[in-house]
Design a protein around this nucleic acid. Structure first.
Length: 909
RNA sequence: GCGUGGGUAGCUCAGUGGUAGAGCGGCUCGUUUACACCGAGUUGGUCGGGGGUUCAAAUCCCUCCCCGCGUACCA
């Protein structure tokens, strides 16, 4: 076995070592006493027990890029991290575990013991995602890490509850809410996801209660998707203008079971076109029906238990039955009674609980609600761009929601979360909690709403509900900086309002909108100036990444294999502003590979090797703009342009374009062209001054490029910065603390000289392309050292060496006015005519003319013949005998070609 | 339904009035002073359909089709 010394870049240890050094060096600390311009971001807190997914990678890489760039621009930067307690998500996880491992429910343990379990779970899993963010390279100020259930943070929640209650914005009331029969809690409208469902539309008929003057029996037909709620029907509604039913209004129909007479009412909300134009009204189980019920003073009969099973009001035969079973059973019973007319397939939208993924049940229950504060300020701030949305089309979505804003149901029937800071005096508790409404005005000595419990706590009962998780998240930007009972901290004074917020558009209402309102309410100003909305990470087929689909690769696995820098670069390069990201997953021999990440890794490797190449050369003398070759001027001018273009792209948050600019500059301009052209300048017999300025140019380019690339690929750039010895005595300890370069390397040179040099280089490079092309056409491999003859024109060649080096020629001679024999391969280029003199070739031009248009295939054959011939005589003229042999072979081929030509002709006729 | 983003090479996408581009893939060739995680060359396109404006349209206008997202009390 041969021992292979890897020339490739191995990211693993390099990345973790640098991360540790940065942390030890205090690089991430936001200096609240600093006197530089401030830049700040608060992290969208991930779920405390969550696991890093590609969405996080995208989101946090963007934040890290912004933070690192800001540091290098010389700002005082704070990226404040933390985690969210995620009420339902975390509680269900623990409940699930309890059920599985101990066959117990949370009620078996009791509130206190259960919460202990959740804290245990949190302590065990809470740190995982934080460690994962560190592995990604995130430069958060970890000393300032917050958790939404920290003691200090929790006080904030109580404080704002009390504030809003006293202001009359929080009230308790019996309302129609979205009820999750699985989690057994109320949800906010935002937590309900509408999904189209294939269901059935049941047409049933109710008998009209006979009246005097009726002409025989009368029935009305009613269409419904939910026959299982029929037992809760307390009315039937028709449109007042519907002629078919106008006379029925005010009369009664018979609900089949439990049998009862229910009134027919008129309501404009009814669409005569839909179904039969008659609606069964179930005020307890539908929001619209509830409204109709209230308007018409209908009875409200709840036929469900909280878990979605039917209760006694549904009658003994249905009681205890699950709602979906009951749907079938009710339909069957109607059928038996002869009151089911028909059943049609039907597609409708059904609201699902976001977390539990079961259809939610509209349900009347006692909950706490909030009327939003500072709605107008928040709406205006976004409308007039005080807070800039990117892309700004989200403004419209935001405005639309703010426009139709509804009171927020903030109470949850959970245990994990911030318990509502409301206490009822023991002997009055039952009575108070049964009241249809409770607000600040009714608060008396029997109701205590406060940050602290009442002094004689044993005489009080605390409200058992907790607050919606988002009720704590909306304070995040300032509650993480200052304690609730203190004056604004130095940190807040320095870093609030924050500069950028990077988040997913999915939580524009859940979080962004509410933070803006909270910012105005408690801090009197906006919480952030820019909101960058990322796209959604999808798989190669365009499906959203999700656990259940199993299409979501673990970013940590990817990092382990390719490196964090590669993953960061890959995801940024494919993340255009505001549209979704396709994360391609290919399968190679049963193993998943990620083409975009492979490219990222290859890029890192390319960078690594370009640096290695530089390291193999001697040190350079001082950089001197006056003694540069045209090639050096060209690459430095392109670097200046890169610097300028990047600044502009950062202005507009065009992250994928930035990645592309970096990639193209380095790989194409620097490696493929400049490095290759430098090889002749670095050769042993090259001029000393040229060699020196070339090396100095390489250093300058690498130095500046590493700085520009650092926010995207922090680890490898830092490593190379050190390896190449770019840190000068007085420089900061790390690359990440070093100031970005300005775009003025060539400031000493004349503008016109620069553009002239660039034009010349462009012409030469184009000629190189043509010459290579010529070689390839004759099957001469890149390293066959052919001889070219150039008949110069225009810009011409300053020296032949670079050209020779780039095309891989043994010799290039300049022969003004050179006249080639017929058939010698020729190319027209901006620097003149280029000839590749080879003997005994078939004259392709002549043949092309002879064979006509149809000869594509014949021409290809001829090209192959020429390639063979060329390969046998590429350096010098062949001896007579060889030439003769080739001519014979040429003749044979020619015959075949003629035959082919005839065949084509025949085919044509 | 309304709003919104999109449909360009086999794949992922750039390209807002002036000769259709990049990367990946495919094919051919290759142990050149870094890099095969590489180099050189090459092959791929009625720019979703139709109509219009214009000397000129992927780009502007109209219309239709398809996909995604948001939103809506159609039972």
């Amino acid at each position: 076995m041969t021992k292979e010394i890897s020339t490739g870049y191995q990211p693993g240890d390099v990345e973790t070592q640098w991360y540790d050094r940065w942390v030890e060096g205090g690089c991430f600390r936001g200096d609240e006493n600093g006197d530089k311009e401030s830049y700040s971001i608060v992290i969208p807190p991930p779920n405390v027990t969550g696991i890093l997914h590609l969405g996080h990678v995208l989101n946090n890489t963007i934040q890290d890029i912004l933070a690192r760039r800001a540091r290098m621009e010389g700002k005082d930067v704070l990226w404040l991290p933390g985690t969210d307690h995620a009420g339902i998500a975390t509680q269900s996880k623990v409940e699930q575990k309890l059920r599985k491992e101990e066959k117990k429910t949370r009620r078996d343990l009791g509130r206190e013991a259960f919460l202990e379990r959740v804290w245990e779970w949190k302590d065990k899993h809470g740190g995982i995602i934080i460690e994962q963010l560190k592995r990604l390279g995130c430069s958060c100020d970890w000393d300032r890490e917050r958790f939404t259930m920290d003691e200090e943070y929790s006080k904030w929640i109580s404080k704002i509850f009390v504030d809003l209650f006293e202001e009359g914005l929080i009230y308790r009331g019996k309302r129609m809410v979205n009820w999750c029969p699985k989690s057994l809690t109320a949800l906010s409208d935002e937590e309900v996801i509408m999904k189209p469902q294939k269901s059935k539309l049941y047409f049933m008929r109710y008998r009209v209660v006979p009246e005097d003057g009726d002409d025989g029996e009368r029935w009305v037909e009613i269409a419904t998707t939910r026959p299982e709620t029929l037992m809760g029907d307390t009315g039937v509604a028709v449109n007042p203008d519907d002629e078919r039913y106008g006379d029925l209004v005010g009369r009664k129909v018979i609900r089949p079971f439990p049998e009862a007479e229910i009134p027919v009412v008129a309501d404009e909300h009814i669409d005569p076109e839909f179904g039969t134009g008659v609606l069964k009204v179930t005020p307890a189980h539908d929001k619209a029906d509830f409204d109709i019920g209230v308007k018409n003073d209908l009875e409200i009969i709840d036929v469900f238990h909280p878990d979605g099973k039917l209760n006694d009001h549904a009658g003994p035969e249905f009681s205890g039955m699950d709602r979906f079973e009951a749907r079938k059973a009710a339909a069957e019973k109607l059928e038996e009674m002869g009151q089911l007319v028909k059943v049609e397939d039907y597609e409708n939208n059904v609201g699902f609980s976001e977390r539990a993924d079961v259809p939610i049940e509209p349900r009347i229950s006692m909950q706490w609600f909030l009327k939003y504060p500072c709605v107008e300020e928040a709406a205006n701030a976004v409308a007039n761009d005080e807070i800039r949305f990117r892309p700004d089309r989200w403004k419209k979505t935001f405005a639309h929601w703010m426009d139709g804003i509804q009171d927020w149901c903030i109470s949850r029937q959970l245990w994990w979360g911030h318990q509502i800071p409301v206490w009822y005096r023991k002997e009055k508790a039952e009575e108070l909690q049964a009241r249809e409404s409770l607000d600040a005005e009714q608060a008396g000595s029997d109701l205590h709403v406060g940050i602290d419990p009442p002094a004689d706590e044993e005489n009080w009962v605390r409200d058992g509900d907790v607050l919606d998780t988002w009720f704590s998240s909306w304070l995040w930007p300032f509650a993480t900086m200052t304690d609730s009972d203190a004056e604004p901290s130095a940190t807040e004074k320095k870093f609030y309002p924050t500069t950028d917020l990077v988040t997913a558009p999915e939580i524009i209402f859940f979080w962004v909108a509410r933070m803006i309102m909270a910012g105005y309410r408690w801090r009197g100003e906006l919480p952030f100036r820019n909101v960058y909305f990322t796209g959604i990470v999808r798989d190669g087929k365009g499906r959203k990444m999700s656990k259940s689909l199993g299409n979501s690769p673990d970013p940590l696995d990817i990092i382990a294999e390719y490196g964090a820098d590669a993953l960061r670069f890959a995801i940024m390069r494919t993340a255009p502003l505001g549209s979704d990201i396709r994360f391609d997953i290919a399968n190679e021999g049963g193993k998943e590979v990620y083409p975009q990440v492979v490219e990222g890794r290859n890029f890192a490797n390319k960078l690594w090797n370009a640096a290695r190449y530089r390291q193999m050369q001697p040190d350079s003398a001082q950089f001197d703009a006056a003694s540069l070759s045209i090639y050096s001027i060209d690459i430095l001018a392109k670097l200046d342009k890169l610097t300028v273009d990047m600044a502009a792209a950062y202005e507009d948050y065009r992250f994928n374009e930035l990645a592309q600019l970096l990639y193209d500059f380095f790989w194409s301009n620097y490696c493929d062209w400049y490095l290759e052209s430098s090889k002749s300048a670095l050769s042993e017999d090259a001029d000393e001054a040229v060699r020196n300025s070339t090396l100095a140019t390489m250093d300058e380019v690498l130095k500046r490029f590493l700085l520009l690339l650092h926010p995207y690929m922090p680890h490898i750039t830092e490593e190379l910065w050190e390896k190449l010895g770019f840190r000068k005595e007085d420089d900061p300890e790390f690359l990440m603390q070093t100031a970005l370069p300005s775009a003025a390397i060539l400031a000493d040179l004349d503008e016109a000289d620069i553009s002239q040099a660039q034009e010349q280089v462009k012409a030469i490079y184009e000629a190189v392309g043509r010459a290579r092309n010529l070689k390839a056409e004759y099957g001469l491999s890149a390293n066959k050292e052919v001889k070219f003859i150039i008949d110069p024109e225009g810009a011409g060649l300053e020296d032949v060496d670079v050209f020779r080096q780039l095309v891989g020629a043994a010799g290039v001679s300049i022969e003004p006015g050179f006249e080639a024999e017929k058939g010698v391969p020729t190319a027209l280029t901006p620097i003149g005519k280029i000839y590749l003199p080879l003997d005994g070739l078939i004259d392709l031009d002549a043949e092309r003319e002879r064979l006509g248009k149809e000869s594509k295939k014949a021409e290809d054959e001829l090209k192959k013949v020429n390639a063979k011939l060329a390969n046998e005589n590429f350096v010098s003229r062949a001896p007579e005998a060889v030439v003769k042999e080739m001519r014979d072979r040429q003749k044979q081929w020619q015959e075949r070609v003629d035959e082919l030509g005839r065949m084509i002709d025949n085919l044509g006729s």
